[in-house]
Design a binder for these strands. Structure first.
Lengths: 357, 357
DNA sequence: TTGTACGCGTTATCAT
DNA sequence: ATGATAACGCGTACAA
């Protein structure tokens, strides 16, 4: 009841058997008869016994715990990914420890350290904007922790990467813009050192080249992920005499910033300016105009990343993943912000957010 | 380097001293000279040593870990609260384990169980919609775990509760509607057994009574938190001949549903219908019309909840909290959805979401 | 089918 | 100032 927390010794004593036998019974060891198992479990419940994961972990080496590090839990791309990860963990009886880096390398390091101390079996990480080195991840790997990167990753770092087909998605997006007769398509990107952003840029460039559009050099802005930099870049672009008629970004937050800027500059979207985002954050379909974006299947992405560990841990086929990369197909969601002529009828909005109520 | 993970024994061996002394050095024990501490730490870094929290926990009883259980991490009220909790944990060198209940009592129970096994020192919980019993929380408390509820709580359950001033906020909200000349104000609420929702209803009722408005009985709908129920209730209300000219809800998700419904029914907001939400989800200021809502200071709320534990653990003054309840003042954010006459000039949007880019 | 003995890595206590 | 030892709760190899 009260006092100390019950241990297997308490159960053993009450039942007049040894602690080790209780342990086996609790773990459904085949050599223990079912009747004994039941008796033990009943007594355990009676004493309000709880398995002590720490002791077990210390004994066994595995903590049955996964750690995840993301920049911001408040961005729905990440919280959705976590939802997927959590689902996989739940299914495999794993616990999940979540840390945020707040886009800071220092905090990311600290998070890795915490997770190592917590003895997690695996770390799922989407690195911060600042992260360029992987010393911290290497240290974790040396401690025997599996590292799986998702979405934002460092290419040189070994281990699996679960990512979207960023280049294709961006390429498709540009083609869509072109098909809507936009010709002066600018690009506001992210840090060049992160492949996610580089790939999106590459896809953009490919589309531009293929269509033989001539784009002024200053239409391609890199490393402008923060709101401040985005606004600054977009302001410059939109203040030109010969301003772009479309701006493609690498995140919905950027796209939102551009949209709000356009609104304040009395530039009509999508008539005078098309805007395209990335990630399908839930707010994108609530904006007016609704925002065209790329659905990265964040939840699925997270789930697959986690399952990569579980299937490997289960001795499963680890060879399915070529080049250590698992690519999740994303798809573009065309909405009002990139459609010159809005559809006449009210479009039935996606059911996705509806289910979230 | 590789092979096994380094322990204090490895350090001790390399340095020709005992493990216990290494332990003390690492923990900055005052009886160890600074020079030795430094030598030990240097060697620890060299060997890539990491403190094993599980072993320490097993030895010390405390895991320096906090658990938090929330319905959905994807709702920004909760993810913001978690951001606050994480901040407090970070400052106190605590780890944080996050679990979602998905509004299911069964999953919430499982989460509590997980956290008990993880030996967390404290559980912060915002209960699921389904939760009516607190057996699971009682079990945790019997295991010596502090339980702190926030936002959604069970009144009968002992322990601290950190909440918003729901009744006042709702009361203020109604008064605002009345001042805008809305007279037929309906209410769509949540589960009656959760005080948060009951309090919001009470505040609504109080405002209505005070203004001596006569409201048909069917204007007060309870237990309609899900999107389906909200839509159903709102459809009924808005299909009447004598339909309401304002609908107050207890969550932004409900308000969003009502807004979308109104749009589809060609009812103009806010001219023909005012809509009021709760929680200041980030999407509320992106809607058109922007949504009037109640800012619950979710991050602050989470932070305070966590700090309640830390200040208590630190032997601080636990008596500050009357009736075990800590009330965080919320404030209503008046936007377009409840303003009969929209302001002429463009309102500068709150900086809040801007900082999130 | 059941029990004994040991060790996982750390730290508190006692001793030197 | 430093070391030896025990103990935290559990699981497992080995013994019976």
């Amino acid at each position: 009841m009260s006092g100390k927390r019950a241990t297997i010794y308490h159960i053993a004593e009450e039942l007049g058997m040894s602690a080790s036998y209780v342990s086996r019974a609790l773990n459904d060891h085949p050599l223990v008869s079912v009747s004994v198992r039941e008796k033990v479990k009943k007594k355990a419940a009676e004493l309000n016994y709880r398995h002590n994961s720490h002791a077990a972990n210390l004994r066994q080496g595995s903590s049955k715990t996964m750690g995840v590090i993301i920049p911001h839990i408040t961005q729905s791309f990440f919280s959705e990914a976590i939802a997927g990860i959590e689902e996989a963990c739940f299914a495999n009886n794993y616990s999940l420890i979540i840390c945020q880096s707040h886009e800071s390398f220092a905090q990311e390091r600290k998070a890795v350290d915490t997770l190592i101390r917590q003895n997690v079996d695996c770390i799922l990480i989407s690195v911060s904007e600042e992260t360029q080195s992987s010393e911290h991840l290497d240290a974790a790997r040396e401690s025997g922790i599996e590292i799986i990167q998702f979405d934002r990753y460092l290419d040189k770092t070994p281990g699996y990467k679960v990512i979207s087909d960023n280049a294709e998605a961006a390429y498709t997006a540009v083609k869509h813009l072109i098909s809507e007769k936009y010709k002066k398509i600018a690009f506001i990107g992210g840090p060049w050192h992160l492949p996610v952003f580089k790939d999106r840029k590459d896809g953009y460039i490919k589309g531009i080249k293929e269509a033989k559009l001539s784009i002024p050099f200053n239409y391609v802005v890199e490393n402008a992920l923060s709101r401040e930099l985005t606004v600054q870049a977009a302001t410059e672009l939109l203040s030109e005499k010969d301003r772009p008629d479309a701006i493609m970004t690498v995140s919905d937050m950027q796209a939102l910033a551009v949209l709000q800027l356009a609104e304040s500059m009395n530039i009509e979207v999508p008539q005078q300016l098309a805007i395209l985002g990335f990630a399908n954050e839930s707010f994108t379909e609530l904006l007016r105009p609704t925002l065209t974006t790329v659905d990265q299947q964040s939840k699925e992405l997270g789930k697959q990343a986690a399952n990569l560990y579980f299937s490997k841990a289960a001795g499963g086929n680890t060879e399915v993943v070529a080049d250590e990369k698992l690519v999740i197909k994303s798809n573009i969601i065309i909405r009002q912000s990139t459609r010159r002529k809005p559809a006449a009828a009210a479009r039935s909005s996606s059911k996705k957010s509806a289910a979230k109520a």
